[in-house]
Amino acid sequence: MTKDNIRRRRDDLPELYPRRGIAAWRLWLTLALGSILFFWGLDVLGFSLQRLASGSQRLGDVLLMMWPPQSKGQFWTYLNGIGQTLAMAFLGTLTASILAFVLCLFGARNIMPLGPVRFIVRRSSDVIRGLDSLIWAIFFVSIVGIGPFAGVLAIAINDMGVLTKLFAEALENTEKDQIKGVRSTGASRIQTIRFGVLPQVIPVLVANSLYFLESNVRSATILGVVGAGGIGFYLMDRMMISAWREVAFIVIMILFTVAVIDSLSRALRARLLGQTTISGR
């Protein structure tokens, strides 16, 4: 193939070659503007090589100070903290699930015919979801005082918002044929919901609640930061006084607990849903 041939084809099929001329300039300009924007953002956020370098050094120092992890005789205190964390997650998720189960009936199109009611339920759950559970925790600490109860309430409220939305969507995704089948037997509206809709969604709701239990164990570990009980209180306390070995010890306890809860919840989900493949292969 001659050079002329190649040149001719490059002219014939420009879309198969990198852009040239103005198009190439436009590409480079976009890239340049993009990177300027990117680095400007980094600057706004206070990134600098010098800060990263000196910070990494300090971080390395802290990590070295964490070794070896030690409980300093506080093991049972910490275990109690872990217990509180688990209790907060469990009660919070349970309460949230029950509340959301009631509320979702008012938020699903195929069950609640009144649009305004649906609108209020859905929007208020949006508003609740908009605030992190830590914000709710501060709020409840100032209502019921310092302690794990505030954490329970924070998790309950925050997850009620999330679960209501999820449950309502699950309800709306139910199969119409099964519902029609139940209605055709002469069942009332309530009976139709009880026998046509609920059997379809209960497994979904239970599986979702268990997922949230898992993630709540993680989020409950930090609610103590604002005084809402659990292991987070001790963690924050030890960090504030730079007791790094104890911090490492607590973090390891948290890692262990989360791993246990994850496998428990996976097993439970598999049993309740009658399938072992839910968490993948």
């Binding site: 910070g55 300090r58 802290v62 989020s219 930090i222 930061v225 924050m236 960090m239 890692l255 989360v258």
Partner: peptide, 18 residues
């Protein structure tokens, strides 16, 4: 598994407030 807030405290300590 380690919550963001724990990392955040650690990093505030290392990299300063901000």
């Amino acid at each position: 598994t380690v919550p963001e807030l724990v990392f955040a405290v650690l990093f505030v300590f290392a990299f300063g407030i901000g």
